[in-house]
Amino acid sequence: MEIKMSQFVLKDRFSILVHFPVKIQNVITNEDSGYVLHQKIEKKISVIAYLERETNKSKEKILQSLKLVKFSLNRQGALMNHLTLQETKKVQLAKVLLWQSRVLICEFFFQDLLDAEKEYFKRLMRNLMYKKNIQVILIENDMNFVCETVKGFYLFTKNGKYKYIEDFYSDEIYKYVAMPFTVELIKYLEKKGHKVDHEITFSETLKAIYRGVQ
């Protein structure tokens, strides 16, 4: 199945692809597209040597980039094949930043991050969008993350078909991915006969419940 990623580029907004039907493979990061894939890199060379070889940038620039992606600098000498998946993804992101690719495509980058790191990388990617004009495409299935990040997303259904969804309360979404807590809670309260506004973020849901109880 071939899917052209360029069709999902949204100006000044994260494009999030949910229930993406394929695992991205055999792609090369370059000035057009930078990939951060959900896979380990089985190379027996150090992180610095790997980035030097892939980007032809100075060690100083490489260290700056690694710092920006919160890669622990005391691990810079570690071999690529000894890194955890999360560390590998940070190195891949550092590579994309060094390439200054115009489109950044991340596969499940946020999946195993700590919540504090999630917020940091959302800020970093927003900065890349606004200051460097880089378009960001995220492939994620965690609807809790999607709810807190965007107002709409691309949902892939069957046979590679997709649609742009803004109604997070549409039951169709949850045939494919797990329901976020906010939607689950409000739907449950409605089922129990309580009237609560449909919200998707934590803070708005909290306010909606407050209004509902009052």
Binding site: L114, D115, A116, E117, N144, F181, T182, L185, F202, T205, L206, I209
Partner: peptide, 11 residues
């Protein structure tokens, strides 16, 4: 430590 609370506890 970098963790937020589980949803229902936090709520």
């Amino acid at each position: 430590l970098g963790f937020s609370l589980p949803f229902y506890i936090n709520m």
